[in-house]
Amino acid sequence: MPADSQKHSPPVERSPAGSRTTWLRRAGFYLLLLLSWELLARSGLWPPWLFPGPSLVVESLISMLNKGLLLKAVAVSGQRILIGYAISLMIGVPLGLAIGRVRWIHETLGSLVVGLQALPSVCWLPLAILWMGLSERAIIFVVVMGALFSITLGVESGVKNTPPLYLKAARTLGARGLALYTQVILPAALPAVLAGLKQGWAFAWRSLMAGELLFFSLSLGNLLQTGRDLNDASQVMAVMLVIILIGVSIDQMIFAPAERQVRIRWGLYTRETD
């Protein structure tokens, strides 16, 4: 066999040099942050209901958990974002494909999508409430408006950047019609599509929280609002922490592994330079 057979082993993602020092540094930073926050809160400069320390925030978090409020709120918000995101996917992916591949659609719908992307999706909320009232439909509509255009534009840019060579190869191997889309164009576009999906998720999450501030039924955004109504800054901060936590864990559990998988597949992680 040729000498290149030694490359047969699967690629290993190399952890950055000295990852232990990275973790130590990070832990130290957060410890320091929490400590100064607590000290500042106890300094008496502001009343605790305006500027609570981390201890009060955790207390509030536990009390909300015990009352069952938090899990219920997470469930309600979670359901909304899942439905909204799923709808965005179902519309955004085909729309992005069409804009990326069909010239007249690009010239018409394409410009509209770019324009709408510039509009923060919360701006749709007054209209949504006028049309649908303070209903689930209204808030899901706002979530869709937040995620849809990022997904569409991500798919479009991926499709546009599909190397023509892949298309030529696929066509000479007999791929045509739908198979060309599902087996070549979409997979080739995957890195850009993923970036669009991730951005779409972030926008959907932001839109949902903004929208929920105006709603009366229990949800994460609504918990923020009731915290304000009750002059309870520790509840507001506790809910903010939960929102951050959910955002980070979705990114770490879904998008980061997916992106890593693609990068490994595409060979962007190897150090081999042949």
């Binding site: 040729p2 290149d4 490359k7 047969h8 699967p10 690629p11 490994i264 597949r265 595409w266 060979g267 190897t270 081999e272 042949d274």
Partner: peptide
């Protein structure tokens, strides 16, 4: 079951 990028140009 190797990935494409693991192969040399000739392979």
């Amino acid at each position: 079951h190797s990935a494409v990028h693991q192969l040399s140009g000739g392979m």
